[in-house]
Design a binder for these strands. Structure first.
Length: 209
DNA sequence: TACCAGGTCCTCG
DNA sequence: CGAGGACATGGT
């Protein structure tokens, strides 16, 4: 298993990543993961942290509050993570979905089937496959492998060229043990590797040889 | 100072 | 479909 061998190398080099990073626990912690997953779309995590702090101060830590807060106020909170009008709208839509269908309990993600929930999330405006899968894996604790831009770059360097998002996902899922813990850690390690790739390309490539 | 960051949606051919 | 553009801020 080549993918597992690479995983072990990355783990040995970078150590445990402890994803998903968050300040809150319990119900609010689950919601915070979903919010972060939306905010980090094509955006540096540092900017996301600024927004999470704003939202915490504004007590926007549950779906009910986000669904009800004035759009202009939410936009102001979200500004630092970029695309702030779109992202405020995405947070509203996701929050309303949780409120209307699951009584505002983001922990609904922990229950039910993976496939059904994935379809629901993908049906929401603003949630594409990576965001939906991040939510399912890290908030819903469901065994689904998250594919991001770095994962595709890793594949490129392994000589694996696929087209569709799901083809990449199934490639990882079918070549690794089905484990939430492994999927969480591996995705986080790939991001760490991706960052190294931009800083020191030779070192990053050597690491996966 | 350009360029990039843990994507997604929309439009047009 | 698929390519191309829009969305936006903060760090280096």
């Amino acid at each position: 298993m080549r993918l597992f061998r690479i995983y072990k190398k990355l783990y040995k080099f970078f150590g445990p990543q402890r994803w998903w990073p968050r300040m809150l626990r319990g119900e609010e912690g689950i919601f915070e993961i979903c919010v972060g997953a939306i905010l980090t779309q094509n955006t540096n995590w540092n900017n996301v942290v600024l927004v999470l702090r704003n939202m915490h101060e504004a007590e926007l830590t549950c779906p009910e509050r986000v669904a009800q807060v004035r759009a202009a106020k939410l936009q102001a909170c979200v500004r630092a993570s970029g695309y702030y009008r779109q992202k405020a709208k995405k947070l509203k839509i996701f929050s309303k979905y949780i409120c209307d269908n699951y009584s505002g309990k983001t922990s609904c993600l922990l229950k039910g089937g993976l496939v059904g929930k994935r379809e629901e999330l993908l049906g929401l405006w603003g949630l594409g496959p990576e965001t939906a899968d991040s939510i399912l894996l890290y908030a819903g604790v469901k065994p689904i492998f998250v594919i991001d831009a770095y994962t595709k770059r890793l594949c490129q360097n392994l000589g694996v060229e696929l087209v569709d998002y799901d083809d990449y996902r199934l490639y990882f899922e079918s070549n690794l043990p089905k484990s939430v813990k492994l999927y969480k850690e591996y995705h986080a390690l790939i991001v760490a590797w991706g960052k190294l790739l931009t800083k020191d390309k030779d070192k990053a490539l050597l690491l996966i040889k």
